[in-house]
Amino acid sequence: MEIEEVIATNVRRLRHAKKWTQEELAEKARLSSRYVGAIERANVSARVNIVGRIADAFGVEPADLFKRGKPKAHG
């Protein structure tokens, strides 16, 4: 699995665990909902600062988004 797919899977799982829409995640991470959708489809390679903003929105470490397997949602 490519790293973009790993990040996509982790972002989607965390978002679903929090019961957030893509729009809600986008607002919390200061991104467009279209960009969040592209990340979740593994259509883009998110820059490090974007991964950091998404991790902050979820309350996880950025490294958690790179882990294979199921990340834990906090809060």
Rank of each mutant, 00 (worst) to 15 (best):
I3G: 05
I3K: 11
I3C: 02
E5Q: 14
E5I: 01
E5Y: 12
V6E: 05
V6T: 13
V6R: 04
I7M: 08
I7V: 10
A8D: 00
T9R: 06
T9K: 07
N10Q: 02
R12M: 13
R13S: 14
R13F: 15
L14P: 06
R15E: 08
H16A: 13
H16Q: 08
H16V: 13
A17V: 01
A17F: 11
A17N: 11
K18T: 01
K18L: 09
K18P: 13
K18A: 08
W20G: 02
W20L: 02
T21D: 11
Q22S: 03
E23T: 15
L25N: 09
A26I: 10
A26Q: 11
A26T: 00
K28I: 05
L31W: 05
L31E: 01
S32K: 09
S32L: 02
S33G: 07
S33A: 07
S33Q: 09
S33M: 03
S33F: 08
R34G: 03
R34C: 02
Y35K: 10
G37R: 09
A38Y: 14
I39M: 08
E40V: 15
E40F: 13
R41W: 05
R41N: 13
R41A: 14
A42T: 07
A42W: 10
A42S: 04
N43W: 05
N43T: 05
S45I: 11
A46Q: 11
R47P: 03
N49K: 11
I50G: 01
V51Q: 02
V51D: 08
V51M: 10
G52R: 08
R53M: 13
R53N: 11
R53T: 09
I54L: 00
A55V: 04
A55N: 04
A55Q: 08
D56H: 07
A57D: 01
A57I: 05
F58W: 02
F58R: 00
G59A: 10
E61L: 07
P62E: 13
A63W: 15
D64G: 00
L65D: 02
F66H: 04
F66Y: 14
K67I: 07
K67Q: 06
R68N: 00
R68H: 04
R68P: 01
R68I: 10
G69F: 06
G69P: 04
K72D: 09
K72N: 01
K72F: 07
A73N: 02
H74D: 04
